[in-house]
C-alpha cells in the first residue's frame, strides 16, 4: 500500500502544474485529425485532492503530529474501538479526533467523553459525500490545536469503498471489520485492504456464537496485503488491545522520534 501511494505521489508530482517545471502545460500535445483536435491531458482526476492531501501531510510533519485514518464498514464497532483506544492512550499521548458522519453528532458526543478534542464533520454540509476528502480535513484542522497534540485520529465515514480512494494526508491507515460481517469482506473490498497498513478484526467476544471462519478471513487478508498487521480485538472486553495499542504507539514513535 505504501508502494501504491508512493506511485501515486510520483505521478502527481510529474503532472502537477504551476510549480516551476518547464513542462507545466507543456504536457499539452496536440494532434489534429479530420474534424477534431486531440489534446493530451494526462492528469489524475483526483489531482486536486492529492495536492491538498500533500499540503495536509506537510503541515502534520511540521507540527509533529501522527495521523491515523480509521476506516470501516458501518456497524463494525469503530467508534467503540476508538473510545477504548483513546481511554488507554490518553494518559501517555495527547490525541485529537476528527469524526466524519453523514448526519448526527452521536459519535462525537461519545468520543468527547474521553477528554480528547473532537471535531465533528457532517458531510451533508459538504455535499452528502461518502468519504472524507483532503479539503474537508484541511477545513476541520481549523478547530484543532496541532501544537498541543501528538496523535490525530480521523474516523472516516463508515464505507469500505470510497474512503480507500482518497488520500487525506495521513501517515497510516487502519480498517476495522467485525466477525458479525462475512469473512469474505476483504475479498469483496480488496482496495480497502490493499491500501491499509493494519486491520482490526473486532467483536471477537462473539465468536463462540457465530460460524465466522476467522482463519479464512486472515488468509484472504494475507493474499491481498501480505504485509498487513492484523489484530483480533474485542472493543467490548478490550481483549487483544495490548498488541493493537503497541503497534499504534510504535507507529507514532517512529514518526515523532
Amino acid at each position: 500500500m505504501i508502494t501504491s501511494l508512493g506511485e501515486r505521489h510520483l505521478l502527481l508530482r510529474h503532472h502537477e502544474h504551476g510549480h516551476g517545471h518547464d513542462h507545466g502545460h507543456g504536457d499539452l500535445i496536440e494532434t489534429k485529425t479530420r474534424g477534431s483536435r486531440r489534446i493530451k491531458v494526462v492528469k489524475r482526476v483526483l489531482d486536486a485532492n492529492d495536492i491538498t492531501a500533500g499540503r495536509n501531510r506537510e503541515l502534520f510533519a511540521c507540527k509533529k503530529v501522527f495521523v491515523l485514518n480509521m476506516m470501516s464498514s458501518p456497524g463494525s464497532g469503530k467508534t467503540t474501538t476508538l473510545e477504548k483506544t483513546l481511554a488507554r492512550l490518553m494518559p501517555e499521548m495527547k490525541a485529537a479526533v476528527i469524526v466524519g458522519d453523514i448526519c448526527t453528532t452521536n459519535d462525537a458526543d461519545r468520543l468527547a467523553s474521553s477528554g480528547a478534542p473532537v471535531v465533528q464533520i457532517n458531510t451533508d454540509q459538504f455535499g452528502g459525500d461518502c468519504h472524507l476528502a483532503a479539503h474537508v480535513i484541511e477545513k476541520a484542522l481549523d478547530g484543532i490545536d496541532l501544537d498541543a497534540i501528538d496523535l490525530l485520529i480521523v474516523e472516516n465515514i463508515g464505507n469500505l469503498v470510497c474512503p480507500a480512494e482518497f488520500d487525506i494526508g495521513e501517515d497510516k491507515r487502519v480498517v476495522v471489520l467485525s466477525v458479525t460481517e462475512g469473512e469474505d469482506k476483504p475479498a469483496k473490498y480488496p482496495l480497502m485492504f490493499r491500501v491499509c497498513d493494519a486491520a482490526l478484526i473486532n467483536k471477537t467476544d462473539l465468536l463462540p456464537y457465530l460460524d465466522y471462519d476467522l482463519k479464512a478471513a486472515e488468509e484472504t487478508i494475507a493474499r491481498i496485503n501480505p504485509g498487513m498487521s492484523v489484530f483480533k480485538i474485542s472493543a467490548k472486553t478490550e481483549d487483544g488491545f495490548d498488541a493493537w495499542l503497541d503497534w499504534l504507539k510504535d507507529q507514532v514513535r517512529v514518526k515523532l522520534g
Binding site: 508502494t3 506511485e7 489534446i39 491531458v41 494526462v42 490493499r194
Partner: peptide
C-alpha cells in the same frame, strides 16, 4: 509478498478531443 502494483488504480484523463470548427 514483495509485490508492487504497476497498474490498476488509474483514474486519469488521458486526452480530450475538441470539435475543430475551422476544419
Amino acid at each position: 509478498a514483495q509485490v508492487e502494483m504497476i497498474s490498476g488504480r488509474e483514474l486519469d484523463i488521458d486526452t480530450i478531443e475538441l470539435v475543430d470548427e475551422d476544419s
